[in-house]
Design a protein around this nucleic acid. Structure first.
Lengths: 134, 134, 134, 134
DNA sequence: GTGGTCTAGACCACC
DNA sequence: GTGGTCTAGACCACG
């Protein structure tokens, strides 16, 4: 998985990292139980401080995307995939995010079909979630 | 238009304000040329510092959502609605945003139809963009 | 509120800090909405790095004990006090903690009355939770 | 005795092990003088490194919960059960632990009776300490 | 080897 | 003024 970071942007590096890893998981590039690069490794690869990577991992852990197995480092942990809106807080966040993006798109001149096509493409990107690497 | 601000929370107040106004425009609550509340009016209503509101307006202006009319203050300025991806930088940002949201949704267990339904609902919210009130 | 830190102990400083503040809230030394000392202030008082204090505050925030109002810094935020075991994860943690402490006490020779007296004293310490300082 | 270990999570494995064994002793599942499983036996059962189990046993020994019998390995050694607060360091630790748990419970909305009921249940768990199996 | 903690000091965004 | 971010580098506990 290739991660590109924009050091000069306004989004904190650790958050960009968190976002990219979430996208990677969503794209199916990590199976359930698969290990992420070590903190030091990733920090060296990206040329950032290891505390920055560590913070991204802690963030992912607190959100339930990964666990840090004391033996193996950070591993992806996909939740049980039950009904969609089990987490109302997430649903609200999702709705709000989609409303903002769609408003911007609408104002820029997007038609509904174009917007939905992009949504569809985003959701279908990657090879789907894969289970069982643990 | 009612705006709710969360003073705790990660998103800066001025950005929340900017976001809510963009959503409002997207929902069609402002016609092209319609005036926004004055900075100090809005600041008083929300109980925030007027510099914060000012910054939000500055941000909207630099993004082309509003213009500053000497007499009437800040007015909404909808762009000509040309082809969708005229602005490649915006397209990239939109794609990235959708990819992140869809990844989170996928991991949470959303199926494609559910996600697309939410996208569709978000886009259709409000009464559509209205032109020419100036 | 006086906080004493054991720099040489095995509990991380930020966690000791978090614990002491939770105890302080439990003792009723902070009303709902009351501001905590600033990060820098507390760091200076305790002679520790401000990132350490910051980490303690972030921990408290992620657990819902405080919020960080962008204007006023960190403020105590007491949750609605509804039914006791609303949070099953917490209940489990509490049970486990009590089982461990009671086992140690039993082995040390405590009788039930002695143990319960200490539990009672611990719960009643301070002047109770106080609301409304917002 | 069944021991469950959480390899992710903040508490080191050897400490979880130590805690579970202390709980087991408190519940009366080990008579005075009864032998614990061998280090490598327990390590194999739990799927952890035997050094980890060894460290847990070392910890228990230094705290006086077990002794190392040359023939039989680690055996439980209950102290004479004298007056409660013979060990002031332990009393302080116990008080501090109870204060923390009770503060968390109070903030979560527990009433005193509920909390005391849980304390009582924790203390009474198991079949009491049994002496003299050695 | 791993992640976690801590420091000292810097810079920045926000309000 | 506030908290948040980041760095470089150190040390430690865990397994």
């Amino acid at each position: 998985m290739i991660i590109r970071i924009d050091v000069s942007g306004d989004i904190p590096i650790y958050m960009q990292l968190r976002n990219e890893i979430v996208k990677g998981i969503g794209r199916g590039e990590f199976a359930d139980g698969e290990a992420l690069p070590t903190v030091r490794q990733l920090a060296a690869d990206l040329g950032v401080n290891s505390m920055t990577v560590s913070k991204a991992y802690q963030c992912l852990r607190s959100e339930g995307y990964i666990e840090t197995d004391r033996r193996r480092g950070a591993v992806v942990r996909l939740p049980e995939r039950d009904s969609a809106c089990a987490d109302p807080a997430f649903c609200e966040r999702l709705e709000s995010g989609l409303e903002l993006l769609s408003a911007e798109a609408k104002i820029k001149g997007f038609r509904k079909e174009e917007f939905i096509r992009m949504c569809s493409a985003a959701f279908e990107g990657g090879r789907g979630l894969t289970a069982d690497a643990g």
